[in-house]
Design a protein around this nucleic acid. Structure first.
Length: 672
RNA sequence: GGCGGUGUAGCUCAGUUGGUUAGAGCAUGCGACUCAUAUUCGCAGUGUCCGGGGUUCGAAUCCCUGCACCGCCA
């Protein structure tokens, strides 16, 4: 039975500077699963994701690359868009905080709050780290020197504390930034503040009066704990003198909007706040904000009070899921254990990967990712259980009934058990999906597979085949098995859309079949099946090695096993002298396939350098190229030719990539 | 430092308001089947329920205390 209604689900908008990782994919796949589920249930769905593009980090990164910041964020936004294609994400919209439609809403929202007296300006004093461009509170500065680690959370990015210290008690001696260790300054600055604090009591009541508003319950309690103390007002501006990459305040052109204030509004700007009233009213409030646990406070406190002040309806639910570790360790760039989701999907199959993410860990708790657990999960659940089950059922229909699914037998008594089991499973499945208990929903699907396996073993159809008087019984069993598989397929659809389609096709259901409903007997039978071979191939040991290899090794590069471990000091690095150079001649080394003899101009002299690049580029291509050369290597003879230096270059799948400078440089400049 | 949480089989965890022999999946061992992707089914285990004390006829469960780990806040 189709239920009417709408479902508006969001992911956080991801910060453009982040390299996409498992965490981003986890949130977005979960949102996708729910979006697909609700569509299937007949609801109108609006599934929103996007990118957060303002703020200091994006600005700095663009500056480092000497690229206009607009271009930089455009390119990085596209990285996420492409990733979502790879992950089979069915989002209905993709919002960018640099979109006109968004900026307009942010400015109007700010103006509205300003006009209502919800925003005021004030001068605050605080400890400021100039190189890091951030304020610190007194407390932050206490243990001065120890490197406090700021998670590179995959929420909205900029980790700027909103609070400003009110400076008292600390003297001026030796006060330095807890992050970078450099001295901080005491500075005074005018800023704008949103009167968040006055909504504290209201917010506490709202949370207490709305069960399921913040899930899991442990997170709800965390927020309530946070609210027990005084709630400060929120600084929502940044002076352009410090950082100008943002949305200008409508009431003061000397400031841009604090990134969080800007970013959170994406949830209302996308459905058309202040622009398309009927559309906005249709979708808002959101039914579900899906977030990682790291951005719980911003969503349940900042965002909710912002909406309250704007007199907009409050979202129905915020669900904070857990984090993934990799082989038991926190994901981090410095550990080099950030796995590339696209590569995993490529190696084991997209649906298999999605299945693993949704099944392995109870939704809301932390989980651990390891290749072994990934492979084990795929083999046990998908290959041995579900895949094999499909295979054995289809084979029996092929062998015993000439590939035609028997017609439904009304009142057939042989299938009562499996029918009841299937319907009970459906009921629990739906209930879990409604609560976003995604792993439990998949548990139900797998337990139904177990049930069907047992049903087949108990009814022993192979002993009935060809026996007179047993035809109807065998028909009943085969129909029941096929119909149970159809129900299982229907459960698969939101999680593994492609595999579900393939299953339906193999079951002989029409192309584009949506799975029917979670009720018994949707399919009448009498049609022909179309087996296609294993839906979920087992990953045997040999294949497992290949998978591990392809996931572990950076794409297109040789393994760099030790380089991750062996750190060198800056002094070690300083021993290497690298200078800019121009290639003035290049010719093959006789009797060598790989070597080229180069003459390079390093400014103060000419050098002969032998490089092993002949297979990847021709001498002509190199003429006149600006390159980087190591000049203080001990000279060596290679195949009888002296080499007095080394050309810096990388190789990408046999293609030569020369190290150079972002712009043409005079020869002889030292790289430091 | 404040608040909260967790500690159960080799591993990951479930254990509802205290109630009989403490469960599931994975991994392990044995047996069976042959429709199936060396798949599936059945059986078998193993536990100081973190330590100590208490309440109770009875505690994994409630109370006190100690230890370990985690989260939020500072």
């Amino acid at each position: 039975m189709k239920k009417a209604g709408k479902f508006y689900v969001t992911t956080p908008i991801y910060y453009v500077n982040d390299v996409p990782h498992l965490g981003h994919v986890y949130t977005t796949v979960a949102a996708d699963v729910l979006a697909r589920y609700h569509r299937l249930e007949g609801r109108e769905v609006f599934f929103l994701t996007g990118t957060d593009e303002h703020g200091q980090k994006a600005d700095q990164a663009a500056a480092r690359l000497s690229v206009p910041v607009e271009e930089h964020v455009e390119a990085h936004s596209a990285v996420f868009k492409n990733l979502w294609k790879d992950m089979g994400i069915s989002n209905d919209d993709f919002i960018r905080t640099t979109d006109k439609r968004h900026k307009k809403v942010v400015r109007q929202a700010l103006q509205t709050l300003y006009d209502k007296g919800e925003i005021y300006s004030d001068v605050y004093e605080g400890w400021y780290c100039v190189p890091d461009e951030r304020f610190w509170t007194e407390k932050d500065l206490k243990g001065c020197g120890s490197g406090s680690s700021f998670g590179d959370g995959y929420g909205f990015g900029e980790a700027n504390g909103a609070g400003f210290g009110d400076g008292s008690g600390l003297g001026y001696k030796e006060i330095c930034c807890p992050d970078c260790g450099r001295p901080v300054q005491r500075i005074k600055e005018k800023n704008y503040f949103f009167k968040m604090g006055k909504y504290r009591d209201w917010l506490i009541d709202h949370i207490k009066n709305h069960d399921g508003f913040i899930l899991p319950v442990s997170r709800r309690n965390e927020v309530l704990g946070f609210l027990e103390k005084k709630l400060e007002d929120l600084c929502i501006s940044r002076p352009k003198t410090r950082m100008s990459w943002g949305i200008e305040l409508p009431f003061d052109s000397g400031y841009v909007t604090y990134v969080w204030f800007d970013a959170l509004l994406n949830y209302v700007s996308a459905p058309g706040l202040y622009a398309q009233d009927s559309r906005f009213d249709k979708w808002w409030p959101a039914d579900l904000h899906l977030i990682g646990k790291d951005i719980l406070t911003t969503h349940s406190v900042y965002w909710i009070t912002m909406l309250k002040a704007l007199e907009l309806p409050i979202p129905k639910r915020i669900f904070a899921h857990g984090w993934w570790t990799i082989d038991g360790k926190k994901m981090s760039k410095s550990l080099g254990n950030v796995v590339n989701p696209s590569k995993i999907a490529e190696a084991v199959g997209l649906d298999q990967f999605r299945y693993f993410l949704m099944r392995e860990v109870p939704f809301g708790l932390d989980g651990n990712f390891s290749i072994n657990s990934l492979i084990n999960r795929i083999n046990v659940d998908l290959a041995n259980n579900l895949g094999n089950l499909i295979s054995r059922t289809l084979t029996m229909i092929k062998k015993y009934r000439g590939s035609v699914v028997p017609r439904k037998i009304t009142g057939g008594t042989n299938v009562e058990n499996i029918k009841t089991a299937a319907m009970n499973a459906c009921e629990r499945y739906s209930s879990h999906m409604g609560n976003a208990a995604l792993s439990k929903a998949l548990d139900e699907m797998i337990m139904l597979c177990d049930e069907l396996n047992r049903f087949i073993v108990k009814s022993r159809p192979w002993t009935l085949a060809g026996k007179k008087g047993e035809e109807e019984k065998l028909d009943d069993i085969l129909y029941g098995s096929a119909e149970t598989l159809r129900v299982i397929g229907r459960m698969m659809v939101p999680f593994m859309p492609n595999s579900a389609q393939s299953l339906f096709k193999q079951l002989g259901l029409r192309a584009g079949y949506d799975g029917g409903t979670l009720e018994w007997g949707c399919v009448e039978g009498g049609h022909e099946i179309a087996p296609e071979g294993a839906l979920f191939p087992r990953i045997d040991e040999k294949k497992a090695d290949e998978v591990k290899d392809s996931i572990t090794r950076p794409r297109g590069r040789e393994p760099e096993k030790k380089s991750l471990e062996q750190k060198i000091s800056i002094d070690d690095f300083k021993k290497v002298k690298i200078v800019t150079a121009t290639i003035i001649s290049a010719q093959p080394v006789p009797k060598s396939k790989k070597l080229l003899k180069l003459q390079v101009d390093i400014g103060y002299e000419k050098r002969q350098v032998v490089a092993g690049i002949a297979e990847r580029c021709s001498p002509e291509e190199l003429m006149g190229r600006r390159v980087l050369v190591v000049t203080n290597l001990k000279p060596v003879k290679i195949m009888g030719v002296e080499s007095n230096g080394m050309l810096l270059a990388a190789s990408d799948k046999g293609k030569l990539i020369l190290a150079g400078t972002s712009e043409d440089a005079e020869p002889g400049l030292r790289i430091t």
